[in-house]
Amino acid sequence: MPVFRKPESIINTAGYCGGCGHGVIQRLIAESIEELGLQDHVIGCVDIACSFWSQDALNFEFIAGPHGRCAAVATGIKKVRPDATVYVHAGDGCSYVIGLSETIYAAIRDVPITMVVVNNGIFGMTGGQLNLATTLIGDKTLSSKAGRDPKTMGHPVDMLKTIANCDVAFAARGALYDVKHIDETKRYIKKGFQNQVENRGFSIIEVLSPCPTNWKLSPVDAMAKIKNETEKVFPVGVYVDRGGKD
């Protein structure tokens, strides 16, 4: 009879808020790495934002560099340590706003890393400001208190469509609001690591993730918001799967 176990790579609790999706994503990363047998040769790259806590929680080597530059930092690592499993765990502020250029160019270079982007529609670590790429129209944040107005703040952008313009190995979006979607997200993340094992190229997995603290919603209502609102703007599914190209 299967026993439900915590991945042994998780060695500490992390400082995430209650109901936050980061911890689930961190666990999916650890499960994927262990199921593929990669846990003895991993370098994780986190941003100096909420994902930073993962470097205390997981028993891997980690690097945290300048805010937003994760894809570039991971590129440097993978180039000099091509045999290591190198992954990015970062937010949408890092990956799509200040570090959009770094993300896009990692995709253009097709660097064989696994990049997991947490789309929670907000700047979490700094207390809940507007995210130009992902905050939904009308959503209230500390820097858009009357709600996001597209006339002055533009519209949210599906960055996976932008990245799909590049010749990458894999691009997909998952969500965490029910078991079915968590399982699907896990399959995407594992696929991203499998691609790295097979040296297939750049894999990016975006995850629609709740931030109850800054959304000022209960964890349950935050999940409902993703299902009813966020997913309408950012559909889940596979955007690119280049498949075998040996």
Partner: peptide, 17 residues
Amino acid sequence: GENEIASMSMLFGAAAC
């Protein structure tokens, strides 16, 4: 690099290795 900042961030990763 696509710019100096990205070049230096890549260097940061390689130097750490």
